[in-house]
Deep mutational scan, measured.
Amino acid sequence: MTSCHIAEEHIQKVAIFGGTHGNELTGVFLVKHWLENGAEIQRTGLEVKPFITNPRAVKKCTRYIDCDLNRIFDLENLGKKMSEDLPYEVRRAQEINHLFGPKDSEDSYDIIFDLHNTTSNMGCTLILEDSRNNFLIQMFHYIKTSLAPLPCYVYLIEHPSLKYATTRSIAKYPVGIEVGPQPQGVLRADILDQMRKMIKHALDFIHHFNEGKEFPPCAIEVYKIIEKVDYPRDENGEIAAIIHPNLQDQDWKPLHPGDPMFLTLDGKTIPLGGDCTVYPVFVNEAAYYEKKEAFAKTTKLTLNAKSIRCCLH
């Protein structure tokens, strides 16, 4: 018999989150649709729960009410004593943790798909938090293969000092899905179709896995975050240069030392320094102006996964 890495157990509980950011409308629209008619997301033997994560922000069509829901799922915020004085999103995070967690427990949901849009030209993107997770690498390989020839990129946010504390991190297997470009507060049919297909293929993978299909060893190309880059700023902290036209919409493309990065209003080009080629992502993302992030630098690498098969009882 072929030796293989056996994944822990079959997958039982899956959640699909929309509206973690209330103005990213593809996930909101799909989740609302699936709450009314969820036939397309159901798979035999699998509990799939669509869920609106930040209903107040969705109602106002804004990213958040008090603070970013997708950055506060750490033990400090989840452990705060519940009171009306807490920011709305912290209270909501505790409610979500109660419903789908608790985080880092045996009772937490197996998989959470968190649906997002970006204003950046990132196409279909899967966000991975753990480079050693054979199950998710296999799932992402399946999704990428199923979507081809449509490109699907994998963004690895594993980093020693950049801690995200994402909404989906309460699950055993957290999956971020990011599709763009799409303006905030807008629905685009092409973007919706791409996100819908990503979810379909992900659920198909889980179904095949649960039925005992063995997935042979595989490898995927990923883009691992190195650092986030702020806009150049003046002495008052105001933005002093904008994304250069040569960099705009060039997510995932190589940016070499000396290539144009920013452009000042008086026409001066600010190039990339250093001696390493990087791959920019979230270029000129609207939501990241407040976070002082013009783009993120990534490096390209390959992740390998062992063969996996479900432990059938």
Rank of each mutant, 00 (worst) to 15 (best):
T2V: 07
T2N: 13
T2Y: 09
T2L: 09
S3K: 13
S3H: 11
S3W: 07
C4Q: 15
H5W: 10
E8Q: 14
A15N: 06
A15P: 06
A15S: 01
G18S: 05
G18W: 03
G18E: 03
G18I: 01
G19D: 01
G19A: 00
G19W: 02
T20I: 04
H21K: 05
L25H: 06
L25D: 15
T26H: 04
T26M: 03
G27N: 02
V28M: 13
V28W: 14
L30W: 04
L30P: 05
L30N: 05
L30F: 04
V31M: 03
H33W: 07
W34Y: 08
W34V: 03
L35G: 08
L35Y: 07
E36F: 07
E36Y: 07
A39D: 13
A39R: 12
A39K: 12
A39G: 12
Q42E: 13
G45E: 04
G45H: 07
L46W: 01
E47P: 05
V48E: 04
V48T: 07
T53Y: 02
P55Q: 11
R56T: 11
R56N: 12
R56L: 13
V58C: 10
K59E: 13
C61F: 10
R63Y: 08
R63A: 12
Y64N: 09
Y64F: 14
I65M: 11
I65K: 04
D66C: 07
D66A: 09
C67H: 11
L69Q: 06
L69M: 12
F73C: 13
L75C: 13
L75R: 13
N77W: 12
L78R: 10
G79N: 15
K80S: 13
K81H: 13
S83R: 13
D85K: 13
E89K: 00
V90Y: 11
A93P: 06
E95W: 09
E95D: 11
N97M: 10
L99V: 12
L99P: 06
F100T: 05
S105Q: 12
S105T: 13
S105R: 11
E106W: 10
D107F: 11
S108L: 08
S108E: 10
Y109C: 07
Y109I: 07
D110M: 02
I111H: 03
D114Q: 02
H116S: 09
H116W: 02
H116D: 06
T118P: 02
N121E: 03
N121S: 08
M122G: 01
G123Q: 05
C124K: 02
T125H: 07
L126M: 08
L126I: 03
L126C: 03
L126P: 06
I127Q: 06
L128Y: 04
E129T: 08
E129C: 06
N133E: 03
N133Q: 04
N133L: 01
F135A: 05
F135M: 04
L136C: 06
L136S: 01
L136N: 03
F140T: 01
H141E: 02
Y142K: 05
Y142C: 02
Y142T: 03
K144I: 15
T145L: 10
L147D: 05
A148Q: 12
A148L: 11
A148S: 12
A148E: 13
L150F: 09
P151C: 04
P151K: 09
C152K: 03
C152P: 03
V154G: 04
V154I: 11
V154Y: 00
Y155I: 15
Y155P: 03
Y155H: 13
I157S: 15
E158K: 01
H159W: 06
H159R: 13
K163Q: 13
Y164V: 14
A165C: 12
T166Y: 10
T166V: 08
R168Y: 08
S169T: 10
K172H: 07
Y173S: 07
Y173I: 13
Y173W: 10
P174W: 15
P174T: 15
P174S: 15
E178A: 15
V179T: 01
V179L: 07
P181H: 04
Q182R: 05
P183H: 06
G185N: 10
L187H: 03
Q194G: 10
M195G: 07
M195F: 05
M198P: 04
K200T: 11
A202G: 15
L203S: 01
L203C: 00
F205G: 01
I206L: 11
H207M: 14
H207K: 15
H207V: 15
H208I: 15
H208C: 12
H208A: 14
F209G: 06
K213G: 07
F215R: 01
F215G: 00
P216M: 06
P217R: 05
C218F: 05
C218K: 03
C218Q: 00
E221H: 01
E221N: 05
V222M: 02
V222P: 04
Y223W: 01
K224D: 00
I225E: 15
I226M: 12
E227F: 05
K228C: 08
K228H: 12
D230A: 13
Y231E: 03
Y231R: 03
D234T: 09
D234A: 08
A240I: 09
H244W: 00
H244R: 00
P245R: 01
P245V: 02
L247T: 02
L247H: 04
L247K: 05
D249K: 02
Q250Y: 06
Q250M: 11
D251E: 04
K253R: 10
P254M: 02
L255H: 02
H256M: 09
G258F: 04
F262G: 02
F262R: 05
L263Y: 07
T264S: 09
T264C: 08
L265H: 13
K268M: 08
I270P: 00
P271E: 10
L272H: 15
G273A: 12
G274C: 00
C276P: 00
T277A: 08
V278N: 03
P280K: 01
V281N: 00
V283N: 02
A286K: 07
Y288A: 15
E290P: 11
E290W: 08
K292M: 09
E293D: 08
A294F: 03
A294G: 06
A296I: 08
A296V: 13
A296Q: 12
K297H: 05
K297D: 03
T298R: 04
T298N: 03
T299N: 08
L301T: 10
L303W: 03
N304H: 14
N304V: 11
A305D: 05
A305P: 04
A305S: 07
I308W: 00
H313T: 15
